[in-house]
Amino acid sequence: MTIRQEGAGAWYHRGQAFCTTRKFDKAIVCYDKALELSPDDSVIWRRKGFALLKIGRYDEAAACFDRALDLDPDDATAWQRKGYALAHLGAHADAVACCDKALTLAPKHLLAWQCRGWLLEAMCRYDEAVDCYEAVLAIDPDRRSAAWHRERMRERRDLEALASEIREAERFVEVPACIREVVTERDYGNVGLARAVLRELVERAETAAVHRPG
């Protein structure tokens, strides 16, 4: 719950102005002044965390979001931004959990969906990442970055499927080099064709095996 004291608000708004002009170091100084006067203001803690994120001080940012969430556990944006900080610290699973918490509190939190998609992409969980970008586009159909990422995730998912199918096919046929090269060269445009050709080769091998005498 925000309990901003008189005087703290002025420092807070100065910090906001500095953030708008991307002077994040100066914004942090202002937020610190505000917190001296109103140390239990969750919004100021969250805003300080945001400024720290923008200059790459992720450990400190995460600590600020923790403090904000101690004061207001239902702040979906603080959860989402904590997830972003943890992602940069390499704690991807914990970061996804933070995004999940944000989305439990605010199911249409666009940045939480987008952050979750980015995290799942980094974890090679492509189907789930596609679902996240679909959720973003359901909220904002004109968000081109989400549409771009959705298509890239579909491409990577299909390329991964082709690689798996090649490993399986090797039990039955000699896989042509041109099909292998689709994977090694990340030739996304020919993945569908390569998968179709590979399936046909395997089907022919299986049919031949069935009809082979003795």
Rank of each mutant, 00 (worst) to 15 (best):
T2E: 15
I3Q: 10
G7W: 04
G7V: 09
G9Q: 13
Y12N: 11
G15V: 03
G15L: 05
C19M: 12
T20I: 09
T20A: 11
K23D: 08
D25Q: 11
K26S: 06
C30G: 11
D32K: 06
D32R: 07
P39I: 09
D41K: 05
I44A: 01
I44Y: 05
R46T: 00
G49V: 03
F50A: 10
G56T: 11
Y58M: 07
Y58D: 04
D59I: 03
E60Y: 03
A62T: 12
A62S: 15
D66I: 03
P73H: 10
D74Y: 05
D75A: 13
A78P: 01
A78M: 12
W79H: 14
G83A: 10
Y84S: 13
Y84K: 10
A85E: 07
D94R: 15
C98G: 04
C98A: 08
D100I: 08
T104M: 07
Q114R: 07
W118C: 07
W118N: 13
L120E: 05
E121T: 10
E128C: 03
Y133A: 11
Y133R: 13
I139L: 12
D140K: 11
P141G: 08
D142I: 04
R144Y: 01
R144I: 02
R144K: 08
A147P: 12
R156C: 04
D158P: 01
L159G: 09
A161Y: 01
A163T: 04
I166R: 01
R171S: 05
F172S: 13
V173K: 00
E174Y: 03
E174N: 04
V175N: 11
E181A: 15
V183C: 06
L193D: 06
L193F: 05
L193M: 10
R195S: 15
V197C: 00
V197P: 00
R199I: 00
R199M: 02
L201V: 03
E203A: 11
A205H: 11
E206L: 14
R212E: 13
P213Q: 01
G214K: 05
G214C: 08
